[in-house]
Amino acid sequence: MMEITLSHYLILSTILFAIGLVGVLKRTNLLMLFFATEILLNAVNIGFAAISRYYGDLTGQMFAFFVIAIAASEVAVGLGLLIIWFKRSGDIDLTSMTSMKG
């Protein structure tokens, strides 16, 4: 209990990932959906850093860096698209994006 092992970090990572996944599935507001994806990426990063520590390998930290870079660019592009969509439709809800009728 007092000794923090790899499993502790992996379980924490899983819990956070599950929270983020619930957010992705539950939210229909696109901004909130973005927040949930940030939670997902952060949860994975904790797992990477923990593996990196407990196996004495720096690869995990490298992957965490690239994940952070990808998250940053995702926010830049996604927020730009979101602003345009809001200007066009006045709404950032997923249910308003049903222009492609199957």
Binding site: N42, A64, A72, A76, L79
Partner: peptide, 23 residues
């Protein structure tokens, strides 16, 4: 805590500094 000091600093700078400011 995991000894990844650089990653921790990057996390604060990039996420709370840049991403959150962008949001």
């Amino acid at each position: 805590l995991l000894g990844a000091d650089f990653l921790g600093a990057v996390q604060i700078i990039v996420y709370t500094g840049a991403v959150m400011a962008l949001y």
